[in-house]
Amino acid sequence: MTKYQPITLAAMEGLFHSETGAPIVLVGQNDTDRQKLDNTIYVPKALSFLTHRRWGAEVKGLNEFPRDRWPDNIPLLYYCYHSMVGLGTIFIAIAVAAGFLLWRKQLFGARWILWILMLTFPFPFIANIAGWITAEVGRQPWLVYGLLRTENGFSSHVSAGNALFTLIGFMGMYTVLSVLYLFLMWREIAHGPEFLTGSNAGASVERLSPTAGV
């Protein structure tokens, strides 16, 4: 990114002005009109290190580039990117904690982490979509980077009404698919896990069945 798409990188990180020893912002509200971030929580110099492998390196900000080459929706890009990276970091933390407990053979008894693991299930979907938006908004205003702008890339033979029709069609199709998916998932969850078969089967059934030993 630093080498090939510095404008997108600056927009994703909310770096409006070039900085030496640029910090990486974890949380902060994007004010694109005034070209600043509010209420930031940041790690000093981390962005310089991550991009140039030197703590004091200069990272180019958006001010270095002409405005008509900036992505057109910088706040959306900034928030999606930060959601994706933030969630990804949380996943790593949870995975490390759960992995540690699994190694200590305490995972299945530690209810707090099991709750966390269960309740975080929507987050990968959110991170996934946020990452997709980051890619699609981040590449604006280009359809082919540096060669073809999005505003020149529309089809002159397919009307906007036609495109809207197919967009609605796809939305309908995906709505049906989502409903079917949720229905089947709900059924699968309501059904519960299969009991183990084989040598362990007796033990688990005995422990799980309320009538066992009666």
Partner: peptide, 16 residues
């Protein structure tokens, strides 16, 4: 793909 836009989309929906 622009001349056959709608039928190609319909083919895509049918494949789905």
């Amino acid at each position: 793909f622009s001349g056959f836009y709608l039928p190609l989309m319909i083919v895509l929906w049918l494949l789905m």
